[in-house]
Nucleic acid binder design. Structure first.
Lengths: 346, 346
DNA sequence: GCTTCGTGATGAAACGATTCACCACAGGGG
DNA sequence: CCCCTGTGGTGAATCGTTTCATCACGAAGC
C-alpha cells in the first residue's frame, strides 16, 4: 500500500457494507431498527477497515461527554497521584477520558482551567479547589449542567444547602478519633492537636472531634494553632517540648498532625532536641505516604484509600444521581500502626 | 434571568455584532480581511456574551489537535507524577490538553489506550511503553501522522534508523559515570553495578559506560545481574557482602543501582547484616526520589530533572520538527551527594 | 380492494466551528 | 464607458456523527 492512509470514516464502512450511513450508525450502536443480517455485515465491514468512531464528531453531535476534567491544586503532592490513578481506572471502565490540569495554587490558573474545560465540553469536573471562595465559586453558577466534585486531602466543610458541589474526602473526624484512641490505649493522657491558624477552613471537623473525644475520655487535650509548614511545626514542637520539660511536669508530648509531611517535621524537631520519636515524644500522622514507612522509627499514621477516593469522585461525576452514599462522601480511614507512639506505663 | 442558559455559540456573537458568522470567525481568529471596526465590535460582543469556542467543533473542522495523549506504564510510581507535571505545564503554555491513560503493564490496556487516543484524534502521544515490541510497535505504522515520543525512567536503546519514535530519558551513561567518579573520589576501587538479567533492554548503555570507565580508571568493577525487585536485590547484597567478608579480603562493597527504590533494598540488607550503610558498605541510587532524603543515612543518588523530562517530551510532540536537540533526547543528570557512600582511606 | 401496520432502510438536518468561492462596490486607469 | 483591482463582507460547504422524518413494501385486517 502507498503512503498516506486517510481516516476511515463511517461512510467508508457503510459503502463497504452496502448500506446507508444511517443504518451503519444504527447497526454499530444497537439503536434503531436494523435487520440482524445487516448488523453482521456492518460489524464485519467495520472491523475489516479497522474503523474507530471519531470521538470529536460524536461529542459534537450528541453533546454526550466522554471526557472529564480534573483540576489538581498541587501536582507535586504524591497524594494526588494515587487519587488520579483511582480516577483513571474508573474512567477507563466507563469508557471516558481524563483531562488533567493543574492550578498550582494560582487563582488565575484555576479560573483558566475551568474556562478551558467548559469550552471543551467536559461531562464533569473533579477539582481540588484552592479555596472555598476562589474561581470555582464564581464558575459554578455559570455552568449549571456540569457536575462538579471537590476532592481533597482533607475535606471542605459541608457546602451550604442547595449547593451543587459534591465532595469526597477522608473522614476527618474519624481520623482524629482513631489517633486519639490509639494514644489513649498506649497510656497518653495529654494529646496535642496541631491545627492550621484560625480561618483556614480545611481542617474543619478535626477540632470538633478532638475536643468531643477528649471530654468523653477524660483526656487533657490541647489544640495548638500554627502555620502548617515544615519549619513552623518543627519550631512549635521544640518550644512545647522545652516548656513541658522545663515546667517540671516531665510531661510526654504527643502530637496529632494532619499530614505525614508534618509528621516528619516532628522527627526533625526531635533530632534537634536530641530526643527520640516513639520514646521521648510521640506523633500520629495522616495520609500514610510511602515515605512514612521509611522514617526511623516508622511513623504511625491514619491512612485513607486514595485510589478509592479517586474512584468515588469519578463515580459522582459519571452518575451524579444514583450515588447511593449521597453527594457528601466521607471515606473510611484506618490506623497504620508503626513505632512513633511511645508506650507509657502509668 | 430564568433557568437554563444554552451554550453561547458563534452565531450568537455574530448576530449581536451585526455581522455574518464568517466574519465573526475571521475577526476572532485574526484571519481573512475584516475592518478594524468590525473586529472591535465582534470582540466586544464575544466578551459580553462570555463566548468560548467549542473545542470539539473546532477540532472536527480543522483537524487541528489541541489534545495530546499520555500513556503511563505505572501510575503508582511517583517518578511519573513529576514528569506529568512537566508535561502539563508545557501543554498549558501551548494551549493544549493532556489525555492521561495508564497501561499498568498490561499489554491489552496499552493497546486499548492507543486505540482510544487515535480515535480521539490527539495531536501526539507520549508513552512510557511496556516494551520495545509491545502494542506500540504494531500501532506506530498504522498511524503515520501522529507524532509519538517514548519517555522512560531509563531510556530505551536507540530505535532503528528511520523509526519515527522519538525518545526522552536521562542520560544513563553519564549517570553511571557520575556514580563511578564519586565512588573513586572516595577511595573505592571495586564497585559493583547491579543490572537486570540479560535480555531486559531497559538498562542499555549503563553497562557499557561502566566497563569503559572501570577500564579507564583502573577499577576492579563487577557487573552482577539480578531481578530488580526489592527482595532479590537485598538477598543479592547479603550474599555478596557475606562472601567478601568470608573471603578474608575484608573488601568494602559499593553498589551502583538503577533506582532509589533498589537503593533502599540495600539499606534493608545492611540492617539484616547488622552493618551500616555509609560506613560498612556503600550505595549510589538513581532517580533522587523524595524518599531518598529521608533514609538514614541519606541516599547518595544520581538525579534527573523529571519535570524537564516531561517538558521535553511535550515539546517533541508539539513541534516535532524544530527540536534543536534532535529526536533522541538524553537529559543531563547530576549527583545528589548525601551519606550513603563511605570515605575510604587507603 | 383498500386501509393499516410493522419492518427495514434511507436522505437530510442538525451539532458549531472554519474556510472556500463569490459578490458588491468604490476608485483609478485606459 | 469599460475593465480591473483592492477592500470588506457573505453564503454555503465541510468535518464525521447521530437521529428525525419519511418511504417502500409485503402482510394482515376489514
Amino acid at each position: 500500500m502507498p503512503a498516506s492512509r486517510k481516516r476511515v470514516t463511517l461512510r467508508d464502512v457503510a459503502t463497504r457494507a452496502g448500506v446507508s450511513v444511517a443504518q451503519a450508525s444504527f447497526a454499530l450502536n444497537g439503536q434503531g431498527r436494523v435487520a440482524p443480517a445487516t448488523v453482521e455485515r456492518v460489524r464485519r465491514a467495520a472491523s475489516d477497515l479497522d474503523y474507530q468512531v471519531d470521538g470529536r464528531a460524536r461529542a459534537l453531535r450528541t453533546g454526550q461527554r466522554s471526557a472529564y476534567g480534573v483540576v489538581i491544586r498541587n501536582m507535586r503532592n504524591p497524594f494526588f497521584l494515587d487519587v488520579l490513578r483511582g480516577m483513571e481506572v474508573r474512567a477507563h471502565r466507563e469508557g471516558a477520558f481524563l483531562l488533567i490540569l493543574s492550578s498550582d495554587y494560582d487563582v488565575d490558573r484555576e479560573a483558566a482551567a475551568l474556562r478551558r474545560l467548559a469550552a471543551e465540553g467536559v461531562g464533569g469536573v473533579a477539582i481540588s479547589p484552592i479555596g472555598r471562595h476562589g474561581p470555582l465559586a464564581a464558575w459554578l453558577p455559570r455552568h449549571p449542567d456540569v457536575p462538579v466534585v471537590a476532592f481533597n486531602r482533607t475535606p471542605e466543610p459541608a457546602p451550604p444547602e442547595g449547593d451543587r458541589l459534591s465532595t469526597v474526602g477522608p473522614d476527618d473526624g474519624a481520623a482524629v478519633d482513631l489517633a486519639l484512641e490509639h494514644l489513649r490505649a498506649r497510656g497518653h493522657r495529654a494529646p496535642t492537636l496541631v491545627m492550621a491558624p484560625e480561618g483556614l477552613a480545611a481542617d474543619w471537623g478535626r477540632e470538633e472531634a478532638f475536643v468531643r473525644r477528649c471530654a468523653e475520655w477524660g483526656l487533657a487535650g490541647t489544640v495548638v494553632r500554627c502555620p502548617l509548614d515544615h519549619d513552623s511545626v518543627a519550631r512549635m514542637v521544640v518550644e512545647r517540648v522545652g516548656a513541658s520539660a522545663g515546667g517540671g511536669t516531665a510531661g510526654h508530648e504527643a502530637f496529632v498532625v494532619n499530614s505525614d509531611y508534618l509528621g516528619s517535621a516532628v522527627y526533625a524537631a526531635a533530632r534537634s532536641l536530641g530526643s527520640r520519636v516513639g520514646r521521648d515524644l510521640s506523633v500520629v500522622g495522616h495520609d500514610d505516604l510511602a515515605t512514612s514507612e521509611l522514617l526511623d522509627p516508622g511513623l504511625t499514621t491514619v491512612g485513607v484509600d486514595r485510589e478509592l477516593l479517586g474512584d468515588h469522585a469519578m463515580r459522582l461525576l459519571v452518575s451524579p444521581d444514583e450515588a447511593p452514599e449521597g453527594r457528601r462522601v466521607r471515606l473510611p480511614v484506618h490506623l497504620v500502626e508503626r513505632n512513633s507512639v511511645a508506650l507509657l506505663h502509668d
